[in-house]
Write a protein that binds this DNA or RNA. Structure first.
Lengths: 159, 159
DNA sequence: CCCATGTCAGTATCACTGAAATAA
DNA sequence: CTTATTTCAGTGGTACTGACATGG
């Protein structure tokens, strides 16, 4: 069964028949899919998904964010974030307190358990990204970041 | 402690407090999320999602693929592809014929309706990618493709 | 008998739309 | 009253694991 591991990738994985844009699409969706895949594995092994862990990491750096601010950082719809936060609160990873200044808002903090998740590295998406960045080197990393930002901008324009 | 941290709210999107890897993660998840978002909008407006359309585009170029081959091209688990194909078949976009050579296999073809979807451009993920690639230029496109491939490899190693 | 191909059932997260509740 | 913030209900697609049917 390990035999089926793309015996000849050059004919399928990078098929010359697909054309530049389509090949790029294939690659992009493969990355997207792989991120979701790892996210799924993380959930089975560690108990949190990729997006959930990103929330944890960001709150570790910026405690006391409101839900709306966090949604903006993540480019997420507020109603999507609600579900993510509910799952994290259920697992007692995150604490939601009412903002004393503005009662509509919730401000967000990690619990002690949350800080332990913040410190994890093995088996996370981040771990793979870290290796990729190391392999790319510092200048390529900056270039890639600019490229991703351009891609993101143009995707956001597709409305 | 009465430190006012309400610096530019716009600096949140590119916050300097996050660090290189975490910023990269944020950007990467933003791209992933935007792809899913557009996919959702496509489904509402055109009737097919992003992954479904990628299947259509690839089958348009390579008709007669088997399900297993297609799963390999897409880096998808066969059982995931089953659902995608079922939805496309239901919409009569795709036709599944038994392989005359090997009865376990199904070989896949677009219907006439499927070929119309293959020709669409407006409002698709591809359209945004195309604009981004045009903006990047040919040499940068090649660089980005290499970078994505490295990223994909390292992500796949996160098992 | 054993392996390969593919489907099916069950489970969970994400991502939206649209409406509603609450507070500024 | 109007606007802002967040939650809630409902819908659908993706992605797996593990079991299974069927053909080579």
């Amino acid at each position: 069964m390990a035999e089926k591991r793309n015996a000849n990738p050059s004919s399928l994985g990078t098929s010359p028949h697909l054309g530049e844009v389509l090949e790029f699409m294939q690659l992009l969706w493969a990355v997207v899919h792989e991120m979701q895949s790892i996210s799924k594995r993380m959930h089975a092994q560690l108990g949190v998904t990729g997006p959930q862990r990103l929330v944890i990491r960001i709150l570790g750096r910026l405690p006391g964010l409101t839900a709306g601010q966090l949604a903006a950082v993540l480019h997420l719809h507020p109603s999507t974030l609600t579900g993510v936060l509910a799952r994290l609160e259920e697992k007692q990873i995150l604490e939601r307190r009412p903002d004393p200044v503005d009662g509509r808002r919730a401000i967000l903090f990690l619990t002690a358990a949350g800080r332990r998740f913040d410190a994890l590295r093995a088996g996370t998406v981040e771990h793979g990204v870290q290796r990729a960045l190391a392999r790319l080197g510092h200048s390529h990393t900056a270039t890639t970041r600019r490229t991703l930002r351009i891609l993101l901008e143009e995707l956001e324009r597709t409305s």
